[in-house]
């Protein structure tokens, strides 16, 4: 596993699994991809039905969260990948896969996410993606 692959793998794992808050009066804890999905849905509605009322504000809320969180997670992934680059390839692979596997396991086992914008207020990764 080369550092570039490690970086991508860590980034994807973080983006899919790490619960992050939505700033504002909403008790939301969701991974960055969720904000990206909500921003995409909102922008689709805005394109089809027009961006009247609070639609631009809602879109901005989700888009900013998605962008900021994804950038932060990319930086974290890049830093981790760089620090792991000194290790041997098997060691690097072991650490990356173990860490990512652990995060996915947690995300599958526990209802880590609080998503009042979804169909379940609390969910695990499967609930998030279903």
């Amino acid at each position: 596993m080369n550092p570039r692959t490690a970086c991508w793998l860590i980034f994807i794992t973080l983006a899919l699994t790490v619960p992050l808050p939505l700033l504002g009066p909403f008790p939301v804890l969701a991974p960055a991809v969720r904000y990206l999905l909500l921003a995409t849905v909102t922008s689709s509605v805005a394109l089809v039905e027009g961006a009247s009322g609070p639609v631009p504000l809602i879109l901005l809320l989700f888009a900013v969260h998605a962008l900021v969180y994804l950038v932060l997670e990319w930086l974290v992934a890049a830093l981790l990948a760089r620090s792991l680059s000194r290790l041997t390839r098997p060691s690097r692979r072991l650490i990356v896969l173990t860490t990512c596997g652990f995060l996915f396991l947690m995300a599958i086992t526990f209802n880590l996410y609080h998503m009042p914008f979804g169909t379940n207020p609390k969910a695990n990764l499967f609930g998030l993606l279903s």
Binding site: L38, V41, S44
Partner: peptide, 21 residues
């Protein structure tokens, strides 16, 4: 329709969007 799908799949988001619209 897109908005009905959003309402069913993302009820709170749908509520917020429709409320504003």
């Amino acid at each position: 329709s897109l908005i009905c799908r959003v309402v069913r799949r993302f009820p709170k988001l749908g509520y917020a969007l429709i409320n504003g619209h």
